[in-house]
Nucleic acid binder design. Structure first.
Length: 798
DNA sequence: CTAGGGTTAG
């Protein structure tokens, strides 16, 4: 008995119910036929793929391949996203009904086969079948996936001509298409070519709309209408369906209505205000709107930077008696994340809890992000732990949250945990984690990640490539950084900035300047950070005039108001070249000078041994930042350098009284995929004795060549002899010593230090580089020092 | 037919 084979209680009930109603009709039928008819009349009652196949089998057995029944099965297969089964059926159908086409198109779309979906739609039109409102959502989704606005516009034209633009689902799909594609295309000067449609399909090409007749403020919506007008002039391969001609008339009125709004009749000054996205136009025209309509238009506005509009619409939703759901909320949360508005974030979190969708994965990822952006990594991590299921986005949010808050080791640990959880890292994962390697100078990890990126084929992604450029530059491999930069297909402003900053850090100012020029020639507009990079490059190379020029251009030509970093770079530069008075006046002209800006000038005073200016600067500095320890150290060094021991001592006593302790200096070096870290006077390393022996031999030779230890920066009040031994046990020297004994002659040594290199070590390393005939690269907290043949790339100013 | 995460910073 088939009923028992199908084994579905609800179906039995349905059959019984129908049997009651149509008892006469059913009397002639076999029980198998009854079941088949019941299921075909109620396709949604088929609950599993297995049942669908059983039904198919029964039809073959009892109905002799009745095409209507087979089409119904095809539709059911397509509901279950069974592509192969659907295709097999579709291919044996000789005459394909509207339902058959709709089913196969939907199936292609659900499998991401967008091109096949769209070309089937065209074939369907060619074969004389009229599309109905069920087919457009799928076709439009495919246009969206193909990123082809033109195709979407053409389809929209079709929809208008068939009078289907008032359909709810079609309208929703249209808004989604426009929200994803219109902004994308507006930002491109040349519109992306429409996807080429497979050659096998012999029909006119869609998407050949020429925009020359349209004003610059016309939108895709207008183009769709224009397309329809043109189509009306071309003899169509398919004759118009007479039942919908009155609708076409009506559409004509709407075309004119829109034409009036956006055909450039308003003054061009108002163009940006007048411009209304096609998405919003569709939304306004919709006769009925459901929750999905609101969510789509809110998300669209939020993603296109129209924050006010998006938030207003959330309020308007309430007037339409619709409650924000998890979709609404996770569309607007990124707005508050951008403003790091933890208050609004908590409010929404509370709303989600009250409406019991707080365990939603999308909401969870957004909440992790917003807590992390408000530096509440602990709260973010608690939320992350509470998620019952974690996808790549929730992992990425958590990893990025750690890295952006300086928790690099935690970020790396989570990245490994993600891999262990069998979640594939994508380009977002890599661009989130690579900065951790850049900050930590852990090149071996960076290289492993780079290898994985190449294996996944993600190396062309601009975000990933930019982070790699930065990572290699920060690990001292400026040439590799440049290679990756040159290999990039699309360079955005961030890629250029990363490369320029790389050159700046390495003191290659002229490379930085020429790149900045090239960037502008290629039409990439520099932003705040790009100017930080170029000013830093000038500052590290003493290019005063160029820096002042860039500073002025930034303010006047680009309308960027200078920030702390810009002031600091220029002040640093003026100080560096000895124009201390100018620097002083420049900083005084700032809206609110900070301790860090003043202390760059203090460093300039140290280099140029100007004590009066140093005291003036220090006075200003301690007014705004009395706890700036670096400034105390600098000032004390300045006094010591001028042999004003008494004043130097006073400063040190003041530091002591304030309970200030120097940040422990630490240097590290990578050796055979392992990081070896050293602090001053550190004897814990297993090779300590060998390192010490090597450094002693070197010290003797250095002194023969004229090295005199500069003990003026030793803050401890101890005997001169002890001071000298303290100097030679500084962390960078231990790390360099370890590098020398662990690598073959001639190998470049790369060391990273967490604070500024001291004056004496800087001199010492210059001697060492000459004696051992090696390049020694030291990265301190602000830049790279390339020591080679007794000289340093920083020109002794840092 | 609708939603979340990413690169540059004296």
């Amino acid at each position: 008995m088939i009923l028992t084979t199908l084994r579905q209680q609800t179906i039995c009930l349905l059959v019984e119910e129908l049997y009651e109603k149509n008892a006469d009709d059913f009397r002639q039928m076999s029980s198998a036929q009854i079941v088949v008819k019941t299921l075909l009349d109620n396709p949604s009652s088929v609950r599993s793929k297995f049942q669908a196949k059983q039904l198919h089998a029964q039809i073959i057995k009892h109905e002799k391949n009745n095409p209507i029944h087979l089409t119904a099965v095809l539709s059911i297969y397509s509901n279950f996203e069974l592509l192969h089964e659907s295709l097999n059926l579709f291919n044996i159908l000789h005459s394909r009904s509207s339902l058959a086409w709709k089913s196969i198109i939907r199936c292609y779309t659900s499998h991401g086969l967008s091109l096949l979906s769209v070309s089937s739609f065209i074939q369907m039109r060619v074969s004389g079948i009229y599309p109905d409102h069920n087919v457009f959502p799928s076709v439009l989704k495919s246009c969206t996936l193909l990123k082809s606005l033109r195709l979407g516009e053409s389809i929209h034209g079709c929809i208008i001509r068939l009078g289907l633009d008032f359909d709810l689902y079609t309208g929703n799909a249209l808004m989604n298409m426009y929200s994803k594609l219109e902004d994308l295309h507006r930002n491109c000067e040349t519109r992306i070519q429409p996807a080429t449609v497979s050659d096998e399909i012999p029909q006119r090409k869609l998407g050949n709309v020429c925009r020359t007749n349209l004003s610059s403020t016309s939108t895709s919506y207008d183009v769709a209408h224009e397309f329809e007008r043109r189509m009306a002039g071309i003899s169509p391969t398919v004759s118009l369906n007479p039942t919908i001609s009155h609708k076409t008339q009506y559409v004509g009125e709407i075309v004119d209505q829109f034409g009036g709004i956006s055909r450039g009749e308003m003054p061009s000054r108002e163009a940006s205000k007048v411009f209304q996205s096609s998405m919003n136009k569709v939304f306004e025209m919709m006769p009925t709107r459901d929750l999905v309509s609101w969510n789509t238009v809110i998300a669209g506005n939020a993603q296109n930077g129209m924050y006010e509009e998006a938030l207003t619409m959330v309020r308007d939703m309430g007037n339409a008696n619709l409650k924000p759901d998890s979709f609404t909320v996770s569309s607007v949360l990124p707005i508050f994340a951008e403003y790091a508005d933890i208050g609004k974030g908590r409010e929404i979190h509370g709303y989600a809890i009250r409406h019991s969708f707080d365990s939603d994965l999308y909401l969870g990822s957004s909440m992790i992000d917003i807590y992390a952006k408000c530096t509440r990594v602990d709260a973010a991590y608690r939320l992350f732990c509470l998620l019952s299921y974690r996808d790549s986005v929730s992992w990425n949010s958590m990893i990025a949250g750690c890295v952006q808050n300086g928790l690099f080791d935690d970020g790396l640990r989570l990245f490994r945990e993600m891999l262990a959880a069998k979640v594939q890292p994508g380009y977002v994962s890599f661009s989130s984690i690579i900065p951790a390697c850049a900050y930590l100078t852990t090149l071996h990890l960076g290289k492993q990640l780079h290898a994985q990126i190449l294996r996944c084929g993600l190396d062309k992604n601009a975000f990933v490539a930019s982070s790699l450029v930065d990572m290699y530059a920060k690990c001292g491999y400026i040439k590799i950084a440049r290679c990756i930069f040159d290999e990039m297909e699309l360079r955005d402003m961030v890629s250029w900035t990363a490369m320029i900053m790389g050159y700046a850090l390495h003191g290659h100012a002229h490379d930085a300047l020429s790149l900045f020029q090239k960037m502008k020639i290629e039409g990439v507009k520099p932003n705040y950070v790009a100017f930080v990079a170029i000013l830093t490059a000038c500052s590290h190379a003493g290019l005063v005039d160029e820096a002042q020029d860039y500073f002025d251009k930034m303010v006047h030509d680009y309308g960027i108001s200078p920030g702390l970093e810009h002031y600091a770079a220029v002040a640093d530069l003026l100080g560096r070249v000895g124009r201390l008075k100018e620097a002083y006046d420049f900083i005084s002209s700032m809206p609110a000078p900070t301790g860090s800006v003043w202390s760059t000038l203090l460093a300039g005073c140290r280099v140029h041994k100007n004590i009066e200016m140093a005291e003036k600067v220090a006075e200003q500095l301690f007014k705004v930042d009395p706890e700036n320890m670096g400034a105390y150290v600098l000032l004390s060094n300045i006094y010591s350098g001028a042999k004003r021991w008494r004043d130097a001592a006073k400063v040190r006593i003041a530091m002591k009284n304030k309970g200030m302790k120097k940040k422990p200096a630490c240097s590290w070096i990578e050796m055979k995929k392992k990081v070896h870290a050293f602090v001053a006077g550190d004897k814990s390393h297993p090779d300590y004795d060998r390192i010490n022996d090597a450094l002693e031999v070197l010290l003797e030779q250095m002194e023969r060549e004229g090295y005199v230890p500069d003990t003026s920066e030793v803050l401890h009040d101890v005997e001169e002899e002890l001071k000298r031994s303290l100097l030679s046990s500084h962390s960078e020297r231990l790390a360099i010593g370890f590098g020398l004994i662990s690598t073959p002659p001639g190998t470049t040594i790369r060391v990273t230090k967490n604070i500024r290199v001291c004056t004496d070590c800087h001199t010492a390393v210059k001697f060492i580089s000459k004696i051992v005939g090696r390049e020694i690269i030291v990265r301190d907290n602000s830049r790279f020092h390339h020591f080679r043949d007794g000289k340093c790339s920083c020109g002794d100013y840092w």
